[in-house]
Write a protein that binds this DNA or RNA. Structure first.
Length: 503
DNA sequence: CCCGGAATTC
DNA sequence: GAATTCCGGG
């Protein structure tokens, strides 16, 4: 190993040792090969790449990397969005592997290994394979969001939960939506106006634990779930990447027309999302998070929404809100359109369960690392003791656990959409036995692993947050129809559920 | 190709 | 925790 590392350093000029990340490839992807979209520094907060800055392993994660590539035009020939939203194809596996190897200073990286790492995301539900299509995978954006915004999630548990309709959208007092103040406190660094390159950036040396986490500008797709774009960018034609922005994912929240591009229709004024998702200044957007979230709730209750728009946000008032939405590409999330926006109509898009994440763009904070979030939280327990091999064999996996916490996503998706996928990963998961144990053990009912399904009805306390305790409110029953998309999803879930039942 | 277990590394 | 590396199996 050592030798290898050396080799790495020598050959790749990487300094991968110690806490430093590999500078090596910084120029590869971090610097502006794609000037228009990329601004070094904006893309990912530096700290995101520095392990020392954050707890746990925090180097760039593969999926972040994939998104990076996906975002750059120059890599279109290597990897590109294709198919459904969130779906991408690795056109040149070897090259992607090579790039990844460079980034991670793993000269011996190859597609086989990379794909293993990708598979590793299956359990986490961050990705899943599109069956039948070679080198084709699909992001589960909602998951991504959760992973990246655990804090957000927690703070505004209602938000995601609502979207997932896990909690029925009813915000209980406990989970009151985040108020602007709260947000501020959570993210002190929130820029007041304008926008910083990052919402939450950690100052160089002082990372506040709280400080890191959210960057709304980084995630284009977040809204994910809802298909804002029906097609991948590539299919969209020359999608206009907003030229003037350097937002990381090519998505600029502030861009007034962010949505206009094509697929993302602007939201109707009254749409639930309008204010939140396209909030004006970032700041306001954040501050509005509360409503947004709350507004996700039952349509009937417009109060929240109103509040948001009216009072809250001035920003939007007149103008057009800058949107935090998605970019033209796949990643870009889909928010709106469908689902929320119109009530039920629309949606012709195929929706999958990813709806949830209605989040806003954000940054990649690196996943589960913060420890706060859903994921992070409970992980501790599980991870505490290393499992002995034998234990592992029993099916007690760590991963799954983590997922379960996060699991808000859809399974439907996971099972590879339309492809007839007979199994939900469960089946295959090694030893059913083990898995099932997990399920039962997990937050009662929610089924950690396959949450969606079984948990559909159960209001469930968002187990994801279970560890958070207080934060997570008791879910109320969900209103059957939070949004059209949900409905769709439900359908999926039900189906899945049925399957489960059978098994 | 793809999958997932196991061991190992960082 | 998140890979990386091996690897047997489909």
């Amino acid at each position: 190993m050592r030798a290898q590392r050396k080799n790495c350093e020598a050959t790749w000029e990487c300094r991968c040792s110690g806490g430093m990340d590999c500078n090596c490839v910084s120029d590869l992807l971090l610097t502006p090969p794609v000037p228009t979209l990329w601004t070094p520094g904006i893309a990912f907060p530096d700290w995101a790449y520095k392990p020392e800055s954050s707890p746990g392993s925090r180097q760039i994660q593969l999926w972040h990397f994939i998104l990076e590539l996906l975002q750059k035009e120059e890599y279109q020939g290597v990897i590109a969005w294709q198919g459904d939203y969130g779906e991408f194809v690795i056109k040149d596996p070897d090259e992607v592997a090579r790039l990844w190897g460079i980034r991670k200073c793993k000269p011996h990286m190859n597609y086989d290994k990379l794909s293993r790492a990708l598979r590793y995301y299956y359990n986490k539900r961050i990705l899943h394979k599109t069956k039948g299509k070679r080198f084709t995978y699909k992001f589960n954006f909602s998951k991504v969001v959760l992973v990246n915004y655990p804090l957000l999630d927690m703070a505004s548990s209602p938000f995601l939960l609502a979207q997932n309709h896990f909690n029925g959208g009813a915000a209980t007092p406990d989970c009151s939506p985040v108020t602007p103040e709260a947000l501020q406190s959570l993210f002190p660094r929130l820029p007041e106006s304008g926008r910083g390159p990052s919402l939450f950036e950690r100052s160089a040396g002082a990372p506040g634990p709280d400080g890191d986490k959210l960057r709304l500008d980084t995630f284009p797709f977040l809204g994910s779930g809802a298909p804002c774009y029906s097609k991948p960018p590539s299919l969209l034609g020359p999608y206009p990447r907003n030229p003037s922005f350097d937002y990381p994912w090519g998505f600029n929240p502030y861009l007034p027309g962010a949505f206009s591009l094509n697929n993302c229709p602007k939201l109707p004024p009254g749409s639930l999302y309008s204010s939140h998702f396209y909030p004006n200044p970032l700041q306001s957007s954040l501050s509005q998070l509360s409503h947004p979230f709350s507004s996700l709730l039952p349509p009937g209750d417009t109060t929240g929404a109103d509040r948001g728009q009216t009072g809250g946000t001035n920003g939007s008032a007149g103008g057009q809100p800058p949107r935090l939405c998605i970019p033209p590409y796949p990643g870009s999330l889909p928010l709106g359109r469908t689902e929320l926006g119109n009530g039920g109509t629309g949606v012709g898009d195929r929706e999958r369960g990813e709806i949830n994440a209605g989040v806003i763009g954000g940054g990649l904070s690196l996943g589960l690392g913060l420890g706060l979030g859903l994921g992070g939280v409970s992980m501790g327990s599980g991870g505490g003791g290393r499992q002995s091999p034998s234990e592992r064999r029993k099916g007690v996996k760590q991963d799954p656990e983590s997922d379960s916490e996060l699991e808000i996503t859809d399974l439907s998706d996971c099972s590879s959409e339309n492809e007839n996928e007979p199994d939900f990963s469960l089946g295959k998961e090694s030893g059913l036995g083990g898995r099932s144990h997990l399920l039962e053990a997990k937050s009662g009912g929610l089924g950690g692993v396959l949450p969606p399904l079984s948990s559909l009805p159960p209001p469930v306390s968002p187990h994801p947050l279970k560890s958070l305790g207080p934060l997570t409110p008791p879910p109320s029953s969900l209103p059957p129809s939070l949004s059209p998309s949900l409905t769709t999803v439900d359908r999926h879930r039900e189906t899945e559920t049925l399957k489960l039942a059978h098994s």
